[in-house]
């Protein structure tokens, strides 16, 4: 797979999800941020925002995090949308491009959500076909993110981690490991998030993990009063997810990590504070002696904090 030359690689530091309400301020004031990530679909019908992003791109590394490729659609990926993403990629030269292990197109309509896939052999073949087509069109590898899940299918014959590991193996794509999504999915399925993370660590080739995501989520009640966690990206990262992130660093190493915030968007300063928190955890880890025992202690501390 040929990899197009990215003019500015994404550093293994904590970056910030850039949303349109903050963009003009960022373009004029150029606040401190290690890197930014944007949703490309927000720029495909907004030439003004794209022109501003191009200006801003000269000062920050940039990643494109798509939400509309629908990599799990049985009907295949839409060539026109892939072409739009390719055009943006050529204009912005992002360090990374990613999308989700999900689907959002059926019956000729686009549903703005990351809908879950049944982890079956049939779905695996379809995802691999679609990922292959997109990577070929973009002439670069994609990172694929694990979504938050609220549904599990009776037909599944492998776990999400095993499914994504197989996609990586067959297509050469990478993984964007969303730590908040691991936590939300685990809690919604009444599982221990650290055990689920350990399963991810077992299933994945660690070299395939190219980025991590962090975000806040909402805690609500189901109609029968049970706890339900919703990945709304509308709050600070919770303590449990920070703990899980520390454990993830211990498992996978320090990687580019993005702080996402989409709903009830606060002042940009709050996003910087959250990114700084992630950066501190990265720095704590990298300042440890390289001895295996120190890294193991770090992981044990993260797990103990969770317990």
């Amino acid at each position: 797979m040929s990899q197009s030359l990215a003019s500015s690689p994404i550093p293994a530091r904590a970056g910030i999800g850039l949303r349109l309400p903050h963009q003009s301020m960022v373009a004029t004031e150029r606040p401190t941020a290690a890197w930014f990530e944007v949703h490309p679909e927000n720029y495909m019908a907004d030439e003004a925002a794209l022109a501003e992003l191009e200006q801003l791109r000269a000062h920050y590394p940039l990643s494109l995090h798509a939400v509309g490729l629908s990599l799990g659609s049985a009907v295949g990926v839409e060539a026109a949308h892939v072409a739009r993403l390719r055009d943006l990629s050529e204009r912005l030269a992002p360090g990374l491009i990613s999308d989700h292990l999900s689907w959002s197109v059926a019956n000729g309509h686009y549903l703005p959500d990351l809908l879950p896939l049944p982890y079956t052999e049939e779905a695996l073949a379809i995802v691999c076909r679609n990922v292959g087509q997109v990577q070929q069109a973009l002439a670069r590898t994609l990172l694929i993110e694990n979504p938050s899940t609220y549904l599990c299918y009776a037909s599944a014959d492998m776990s999400e981690a095993e499914f994504l590991a197989a996609v990586v193996q067959r297509t050469g794509c990478g993984v964007l490991l969303d730590i908040n999504n691991i936590y939300v999915s685990a809690r919604n399925q009444r599982r221990d998030a650290h055990e689920v993370l350990a399963h991810w660590s077992q299933a994945l080739d660690h070299r395939s993990v190219g980025e991590m995501h962090l975000a806040g989520h909402a805690v609500v009640a189901t109609t029968d009063g049970a706890e339900l966690r919703i990945d709304d990206h509308g709050d600070r990262v919770c303590a449990d997810v920070w703990s899980l992130y520390a454990a993830a660093i211990a498992e996978f190493g320090v990687l580019p990590t993005l702080l996402e915030w989409d709903t009830r968007l606060p002042d940009f300063r709050v996003l910087q504070e959250e990114a700084q928190h992630a950066q501190q955890l990265q720095d704590d880890y990298t300042s440890l002696p390289l001895a295996r025992s120190s890294r193991a202690d770090f992981r044990n501390q993260a797990n103990a904090a969770h317990a």
């Binding site: 959500d113 879950p116 609220y150 549904l151 599990c152 299918y153 009776a154 037909s155 399925q189 919703i230």
Partner: peptide, 15 residues
Amino acid sequence: LFAGAMPGAEGLRVH
């Protein structure tokens, strides 16, 4: 169609 701890109807409601 669904399995797991979360009833399918609840998950569909979220989506």
